[in-house]
Design a protein around this nucleic acid. Structure first.
Lengths: 263, 263
DNA sequence: AAAAGGAAATGAAAGAAATCGAAAGTGCAT
DNA sequence: ATGCACTTTCGATTTCTTTCATTTCCTTTT
């Protein structure tokens, strides 16, 4: 850690706060050396931060205040096939190029893409999922657009509002959509009518459409179709998807990518 | 950095603002040299910018905040005058009747209304704040509509999308808005232009407009006005608001409610 | 468990820098 | 010239940091 030249009180306290946030603990002595400043002054700083409720004061130093974590506690959903979904998401994220505008729908597989977007630069992500937007907000170089609408409390997704409000048409370069079921005959299907409306909205505006489905989705049919295969560019799935269906799709001009999952 | 010749006050202050925005920090001395002007004048400039909420004043200089997510994130903003804000919010919640459609803006005071909405029945809440929407989602009998738009990471609020998209016009019965400053001359003012646009949008659609401001907001003026008092129905504040200003507002037909805070 | 030793915290005071308030000065436009 | 807005001067006050003496807290020893 290098020395830090003299600065305003507020600056120094902000610095101290982020050091503590990072290292979880710090001593007065360390800080004194770091800022080349007297211990008494450091103590004043720590006391100020402590009485603002930002850190916990201890003898000789301070600790990061845990409870103060500004995390929104989204309920943990037990994820089936989590490893597969993560691998699919990772493969999907490879298609995202710097500067692009992409759409992530409210499916769990698409939301797993978030961590893999951390290295991209200047991308814009449009989504209708509140949790996805929240997770994305931790990535500084990502602009986020959340579609508006009625909140579906079960999934924290937004429905009942047309995307057209939020953005001019056709400027999504890639849309990443999940599906409840995928079958040759019925195409892509999903359960909730309102979610379907949003999916279609995104799909129609996207230049390229990616469908992310783990192998359990193959051959299943749900309530309502939301897209035919002619509207899809690339399907990403894991090994376990039926080979003959994949071949049939390839013949129809859909690219199918099968990822291998490490166990 | 080259010298800058004499200019109008406004020009100079704009210059100062953009310098600070670029360098993130500046000292009075530096600015004094730069403009070949006395330190006292520079201090006046900095104080003006600071009381408009555009910079943060420190001893010996100033810092730029806002974009820097470190500074006053939503959770910390909520801690200031928490008790007052809660009491104001409680009083505001009394005005919400079963079955109504209300709007809560992205102010911390409005977000404190959430717990007090738990006993209402069949209400619909529209908001542009992600955290408020999240807290509301725990209340089963509340329908939530989140405005869409670009996510402002500092405040978890949504901007840049017209409310008209999400909902047919004029059907908000009551809007509850915060403000950065309130003064007789300048009306209601706030710092961020995009937030202001959203506030105005809500205000114009609401049948009745409530403004929630703790006593520290009185007499302050920020960058831009978002409403005149003729557009406001009720102001709710805590004891500590200047009595003569309250009287003047009452004469202008604005109802001002002052809550008492238990300590 | 009590006492000693040392590190850390506190309070008071002092010095330097920055700030504030009020009065005086400047320059521009009428 | 007069008024007005802005700037400066100057002394009083405040803020920040440090020093030093004293007290408190923690650890180790007995």
């Amino acid at each position: 850690m290098k020395e830090i030249e003299s600065a305003f009180v507020e600056e120094r306290r902000n610095r101290i706060l982020s050091i503590i946030r990072e290292k979880r603990r710090i001593t007065v002595k360390e800080l004194g050396r770091l800022f080349t400043i007297s211990d008494v002054t450091i103590r004043q700083d720590l006391n100020a931060l402590s009485s603002a409720g930002l850190i916990v004061r201890t003898h000789g130093g301070a600790l990061y205040m845990e409870n103060n974590s500004e995390e929104l506690p989204f309920p943990l959903r037990r994820q089936k096939k989590k490893k597969e979904k993560e691998t699919i998401a990772e493969a999907a994220a490879e298609f995202v190029k710097d500067g692009e505008v992409i759409y992530l729908d409210s499916s769990s597989t698409a939301s797993f893409m978030v961590p893999y977007l951390a290295e991209k630069h200047e991308i814009t992500v449009i989504t209708n999922n509140i949790e996805t937007a929240y997770q994305l907000s931790k990535l500084p170089q990502v602009s986020i657009i959340l579609s508006g609408g009625m909140v579906r409390k079960e999934t924290f997704s937004l429905v009942d509002a047309p995307l057209s409000c939020i953005l001019p048409e056709g400027n999504i370069s890639k849309a990443f959509l999940g599906a409840w079921g995928l079958s040759l005959k019925e195409g892509l299907t999903d359960v909730n009518l309102k979610e379907i409306a949003v999916k279609r909205d995104a799909l129609l505006r996207a230049k390229r459409v990616f469908v992310l489905v783990d192998s359990t989705k193959w051959g299943r049919v749900s309530f309502k179709n939301f897209a035919g295969f002619n509207e899809v560019d690339i399907i990403i799935t894991d090994a376990g998807a039926p080979v003959d269906t994949i071949r049939a799709l390839t013949n129809r001009g859909v690219k199918v990518i099968t990822v291998k999952v490490q166990h």
